[in-house]
Amino acid sequence: MRNSDAFIVIAKKEYADAVKNVLFLTLVSFLLGLVGISLLVAAFNFQSQVAQYNQALEQIKQSGLTGAMLEEPQYYPLQMLRGTVEYLEIIGAIIGIILGYLAIAKEKGANTARLLLSRPLGGVSFVGGKIFGNSLLILSVLGIIFLFIIVSISGIGHVLFSQLELLKLFLAFLFSFIYLVFFFCFAMLLTLFFRSMPHALIVAFSVWLVFVLIIPQIGDTMDPDNQVPGGFFNSMHMTQDQQKRVIAKFKRYENFRNAMEESSVEKHYERLVFATLGIKDMYNDKGLSFIFKDKWGDLVWVIGYCIMGAILSFALFKNGRLLNSP
């Protein structure tokens, strides 16, 4: 069998196995449910903002003033996706981990690893086939989710997306894909590395916890501006320039905080997607060139993490780790 044929055979089998796997299907439905809930919550939040605005406007008008001093809530459909992106960060990563774990665990557990390795099969066909098959799978899952988002937001807001907004959504879809493939590769290499498969799964979940939830949280709680509701500097009535002068004196603290955040693939993904979708206000309604002038570094990090995961998986396979059964 030619190498490319083996590659396709393995990739196809990965896809076919996963769509029959209860665990995988459960997780995908769970994620879809969460996306639905977060969209619903965002919609209700916006609705109550509008209601509050109207109420305040009414009161002001009754007291004989104009409502000009009130800021009318603006509807930006992409900003509704904050909760969705956060669930992709958390549950999307778990889906990646489970796929990566299953890709290797099913061969080790049923001892089909020996049967596979007794065929003329190279690392490119095996690891490459696994990555390719599962990438297609991740692409399908995200495709369903983003389609669901487009349909439900147009349904809720009765607003059609502009071309730029659709392009931004597509980019967010692409970044999410790279992020999930990283977790796939990561779990795959852990399952190749560890003799005990449950051990690999627990280590993968620990790393997921630390890098997806804890490190970003540490960075967040260490942020001086987050110590006071509404922002520390706002409460001091300081200008941007004055803020910069103060922060400049605490470079070491800021560097440490930044280094913590830089180490987390999730943080890079979040910065990238929040900017693209305009969830972070300063990027809202801005063109792509403006956004990427600022965020190309995060894109390089996310892609870098992903490539590193794939390379290490190849290396471990070459090292004969597939036979590392319990």
């Binding site: 977060s38 909760g83 956060e86």
Partner: peptide, 11 residues
């Protein structure tokens, strides 16, 4: 009505 990750910051 808070976003999921926002609830991780005790403040």
């Amino acid at each position: 009505g808070q976003n999921p990750v926002a609830l991780l910051n005790p403040v």
